[in-house]
């Protein structure tokens, strides 16, 4: 029974990708297009393109910059969001500004940041952090604002101290919203990581994809795009794992209400 379920699950998950790959391979082999190499050809160049040194020279630095930028955005977004969300007047005053900054597509900041922060790692991390911070910040503010009045009254009537209230009431109560923001930011972070490397860089995933394109190594370029997809999926999986651990109460409560 159990193996039956497993194979059914495998079938449902893999059927569509398999069909897409098959069609892609078929069309590519038939047309022999230079721009749309077959998956088999891409798979053949993949080890040479990435596993021969580029993993540590390019992919790893990209991921480190992504991680640093994203963590900065998390720290700043949550900290500022907690303060702004707790003070009503402050929130009303700054929320429109946040909305404006969020509305600016973060890639346009790359040229300006290059002027200010140069073209090193600092610029790239700043660009990633700047793009990621707004959804986290805005959602944290929303989460803190939305705390149930009864929960606050309870904390007050038992004279919880500021620190206890923050750690035991405010943050956990806002956590589901914070995670919503953090998830949006993760996707933005990945985009910013690649874009910051396309403008000016000497290494990184985005830099290499552009280089391959310029040298007309299209199979290698495609392999980079696929690698990016894999990284995105992996980052999301890690995120889900963390979310599941931190929001166990929330997910449990939701599944019970259904």
């Amino acid at each position: 029974m159990k193996t039956g379920k497993l194979s059914a699950w495998l079938f449902v998950t893999l059927a569509v990708p398999a069909v897409i790959l098959a069609l892609w391979t078929l069309l590519a082999e038939l047309t022999e297009s230079l721009y749309w190499p077959s998956p088999l050809a891409i798979a053949r160049v993949f080890p040479k393109a990435w596993l021969d040194g580029r993993m540590t020279e390019d992919v790893l630095p990209s991921l480190v910059r992504l991680a640093l930028g994203y963590l900065c955005a998390l720290a700043i977004g949550i900290a500022v969001g907690l303060v702004v969300g707790s003070v009503r007047r402050l929130r009303l005053a700054v929320e429109p500004v946040f909305e404006f900054f969020r509305a600016i597509p973060p890639p346009v900041l790359v040229p300006i940041m290059m002027l200010i922060a140069g073209i090193g790692d600092g610029m790239k991390i700043s660009v990633i952090a700047f793009g990621c911070v707004w959804p986290i910040l805005i959602n944290t503010v929303e989460g803190v604002r939305g705390i149930d009045g009864v929960q606050i009254d309870t904390a007050r009537s038992y004279s919880l101290r500021r620190r206890q209230r923050l750690l035991n009431v405010t943050i956990p109560s806002a956590a589901p919203k914070i995670f919503v923001g953090a998830r949006q930011s993760l996707a933005i972070g990945l985009i910013m990581m690649v874009i910051s490397e396309m403008f000016a860089a000497s290494n990184g995933l985005g830099y290499n994809i552009v280089q391959f394109q310029r040298l007309f190594q299209l199979k290698e370029m495609w392999s980079g795009i696929i690698l990016l997809g894999i990284i995105g999926v992996a980052a999301n999986a890690i995120f889900k794992l963390v979310e599941k651990r931190c929001l166990r109460w929330y997910l449990g409560m939701q599944s019970q209400e259904r």
């Binding site: 309870t154 004279s159 035991n168 109560s173 956590a175 109460w249 409560m253």
Partner: peptide
């Protein structure tokens, strides 16, 4: 309070809910 479902903290176990005010004390 009347609203037990809102005055208890859903992210804490029963034990932790009862213990929290004692920590504050």
């Amino acid at each position: 309070l009347q609203e037990y479902s809102r005055s208890l903290y859903p992210w804490m176990t029963v034990y932790d809910n009862v213990e929290l005010p004692l920590k504050a004390k």
